[in-house]
């Protein structure tokens, strides 16, 4: 039996595969397709202090090998998520990770404090890199000092491990990773989407109502791999890697680059069964390339 288990701060993952935040809602819809207990963990959709309605439509547009989205953090607010969504996910044998977002440091702190009292939530993903909201989000994710500050505050406000989600929309990803490491982050998740735009020829207008959106899907995988490689060389935090994963081979590539676990986003839209299929395929893929466990493959890319 191939050992797929991964132990990370706060998380005992039966396998390294989980849905990326925002691509899976709170799991209900996909539970109609398969048993969510098959998953290593579930990263919930972002929670803010109060309900957010999000951006006008259209909110998505297809691109070559990917898509743009600008949902705008639509969510019912942290209280409703704790009351209605967390209990649903808690029925399953999988780890729950809460994604925390906000416009201000106070809002991040308030959301973290509330989730801290929910024992079913095992860790936080700190969303400092959403490119699609006007205030907050991305500024925290592109300025190392602000990233450090918000991480420090959230760490102080709670006892749960904090994974900081890094934005690729920076010139120096290592500086961002080091800043949140100094602030006490327990891990990193990377990468969020890349800011992009697509113009519709007949109307000469951007296809996305928000004008810009976050690019995801297969198109961004090489960027994610490069950034994980760069961060792994200089930062000791565990990394949950994401960006364009569609197959078990892609998972292995992320592990080799230095990720400890992975998240699948856009691929769920094309194939709602993609995660169970990847989990089923992973042992064979690891074996094919000479690995005896997931752990055995982490960081094993050869760069000399």
């Amino acid at each position: 039996m191939m050992d797929l288990q991964v132990k990370l701060p706060g998380l005992n993952l039966k396998n390294p595969v989980m849905p990326a935040s925002g691509c899976f809602g709170f799991g209900k819809e996909y539970s109609r397709f398969y048993d969510l207990s098959l998953l290593g963990a579930v990263m919930m959709k972002a929670a803010t202090g109060t309900e957010r309605l999000g951006n006008p439509t259209p909110r998505v547009a297809e691109t070559s090998s990917g898509m743009l989205n600008a949902i705008g953090l639509q969510n019912p607010g942290v209280d409703k998520i704790i009351a209605e969504e967390v209990p649903f996910l808690a029925q399953y044998d999988t780890e729950i990770i809460a994604n925390i977002a906000g416009s201000t440091i106070e809002e991040y702190k308030e959301v973290a404090k509330k989730f801290n009292d929910a024992p079913e939530v095992k860790a936080f993903e700190l969303n400092i890199s959403c490119p699609n909201v006007k205030e907050g989000g991305i500024q925290f994710g592109t300025d190392p000092d602000m990233a450090k500050e918000v991480t420090t505050i959230v760490k102080r406000a709670s006892d749960k491990p904090v994974y900081v989600k890094l934005s690729p929309n920076v010139s120096n990803i290592v500086a961002m990773a080091k800043a949140v490491e100094e602030a006490g982050a327990d891990g990193l998740t990377m990468i969020n989407t890349l800011t992009g735009m697509q113009i519709h020829l007949p109307s000469r207008r951007p296809l996305i109502a928000n004008k810009t959106g976050g690019l995801s899907g297969a198109a961004i995988k090489p960027i994610a791999i490069r950034m994980i490689y760069e961060v792994r060389e200089q930062v000791n935090l565990p990394i949950i890697g994401m960006g364009g994963i569609e197959t078990a081979e892609d998972v292995l590539e992320f592990l080799l680059a230095g990720a400890n676990a992975v998240a699948v986003g856009t691929a769920n839209f094309q194939n709602p069964l993609v995660m169970p299929e990847i989990i089923n395929e992973l042992p064979k893929t690891l074996e094919k390339y000479g690995f005896s466990s997931v752990h055995d493959a982490i960081g094993k890319a050869v760069f000399v």
């Binding site: 999000g54 439509t57 909110r59 998505v60 949902i71």
Partner: peptide
Amino acid sequence: EERMGCGVGACAACVV
């Protein structure tokens, strides 16, 4: 009709 993402109610792309 609207441009859709997941098509099953999870991603909140096609809202009214």
